[in-house]
Design a protein around this nucleic acid. Sequence first.
DNA 1: TATCAATATGGTAGCGCTAACATTTGACAA
DNA 2: TTGTCAAATGTTAGCGCTACCATATTGATA
Lengths: 344, 344
Amino acid sequence: MSNSIQKPKRPRKGSMQPTIADVAREAEVSAITVSRVLNAPDSVRAKTRARVEAAIDKVGYVRNMLAGSLASANSRFIAVVVPSLSNIVFIEVIEGLQNEFEKYGYQILLGNTDYDLERECQLVRTFLGWSSSALVITGLRHNDACQKILGQWPNPIAEIMELGEALDINVGLDHPEAGRCMARYLLDRGYQRIAYVAAQMANDYRARLRYEGHREILEAAGLEAPLIEMDQLGQFETGAQALDKVRAELPDADAIHFANDDLATGAILHAQRRGIRVPEDVAIAGFNGLAIGQHISPTLTTIRSPRETIGRLTAHAIIARLEGQPLATLSHDVGFELHAGESA
Amino acid sequence: MSNSIQKPKRPRKGSMQPTIADVAREAEVSAITVSRVLNAPDSVRAKTRARVEAAIDKVGYVRNMLAGSLASANSRFIAVVVPSLSNIVFIEVIEGLQNEFEKYGYQILLGNTDYDLERECQLVRTFLGWSSSALVITGLRHNDACQKILGQWPNPIAEIMELGEALDINVGLDHPEAGRCMARYLLDRGYQRIAYVAAQMANDYRARLRYEGHREILEAAGLEAPLIEMDQLGQFETGAQALDKVRAELPDADAIHFANDDLATGAILHAQRRGIRVPEDVAIAGFNGLAIGQHISPTLTTIRSPRETIGRLTAHAIIARLEGQPLATLSHDVGFELHAGESA
DNA sequence: TATCAATATGGTAGCGCTAACATTTGACAA
DNA sequence: TTGTCAAATGTTAGCGCTACCATATTGATA
């Protein structure tokens, strides 16, 4: 008889946790019904559902998301790739993403590249390996390998922070225009010899885009647009050093347009210590609209970007796509706002 | 004949990606050999390995981590639960964790509780559902439900930031002692009427621990230890308001011990604007040792905590446990360092 | 009461991988 | 040549869940 052939069972340790089968036995239903209670409660009669829920509590069942994701080929992971966690700007975007995604039961996988496109590619690879449902990535520039992988990937991809020619969803602001906006403001205020200061612009190419906008306006006005680039990271200390450097190398500069508020704040605090008057001796402007800028003296003239909004809008767009709703628009300009402080 | 019975195959869409089986076919080896090339390359002969690696490239194979994790009951996920992402302090810990864990191929699952123990419990539940290999959680206090879940969980748990009676691994510093240390310093400098200012201390109970240490020292010296608690979050603006509040309610206070550097910095910047001299009119001290404190005038007297070290040490301890090495010690005091600035 | 759709539940076979055990290969000593 | 043993590779059966299809149950209608 065929059933007389003993197939030796090969036990494996597994996770030792109660499974859906244990719950099903307890509730005297089939496994799939338990699965339905967890995934589509409305498709199960209230009475049955109650019995299953009681059984879940009784056996102390903890759902195994890995198994579910594998079986359904849908992980509910959202891969998020940012260049840095030390920069509050990206943290605010992440918070915006997290707030929206968690409502829908998505889990964020977070990775930071340290502004290295090789690492970015590596992270993308890893995250695809986790069967992510969607990917959020900072910026529009990726290396060739990464571009190729992304091009072939079927799920939603959102490129954020920056607007331009994107692969799929695009949420951000127009950096060249932000640079132009601040340059125009400084010209309107009567400044003529305006230095632009950036830190590690090779990495932070959005700072370069702003510089290009800035230069465009100055050159249109027949002015030069000197650029000072610092090697270190864009922290307070770097801003302080940059101020000294500008005073030494461009002694007649009457304004400095910093690539971000960290640099600008460092410069203002340094100016305070050194007795350099801002804006009388030199005006200072930043970019980002960080809180600290409104607490220093003089308060910082800067451009505010709606970072939490970027996160929220991105999440909305992705969720809509994943839930099968049509997307009105793939590209969203969140805009920015120039805040005139006392420093310029 | 039994093999004449046609069992209808039931095709499922799956992920449509090449699998380990496709690679195996291409390389003319078995699937498990491909698996070994990925997981334990040294156990495969160099020649075979090369063939498999070529096949991987050729078919464009992307490893499915979900399937691997399910099969091996080992996800290589590290769940990390922190109260807030807006606070740079936790970000630095996370960076320390990430730097170590990524070397060993672990992926961090990040969650923030917004200082809510219910949300903490919910997050822990979710993360256990992902079969996390280990859990890193902030602080020693959890609600009953959470405590119960954690008590039954077999994998490594690290409670960080704070030292005390922990479930498993414990890496942090002695907050009451930090409070005592700063109180002693202020007494030594001749201050006698010292206010302690905290924001939302009900949530941030590590600030309370520091206050208790602070009070202990003052009371031992026969002094009072007035406490001013602010309702808002501990940001610059709150520090500014707190300074006004102390000046109004405790006009003879000669020093303020702030629960953190954000508050203290806000107060110093506000004092500057208001023409209040620090430390002559009132001395100011903080806690954390943030960068900004050393760029304002006067520079901030504070206590530096080695946050990246907390992350790194925690990761080391967890990795050791997961890789089966014995742990010398479950508890690690990372210490702290009082930095005397100009503000007190 | 018979009929038929709509609703609720169940059986089975995977998802893509690896643990456990089985077998083959090869290097070297006897 | 043969035997021995370690190293390399293969076979099989799950990991815990859900897609797919099939069947049972319900309730409204003829």
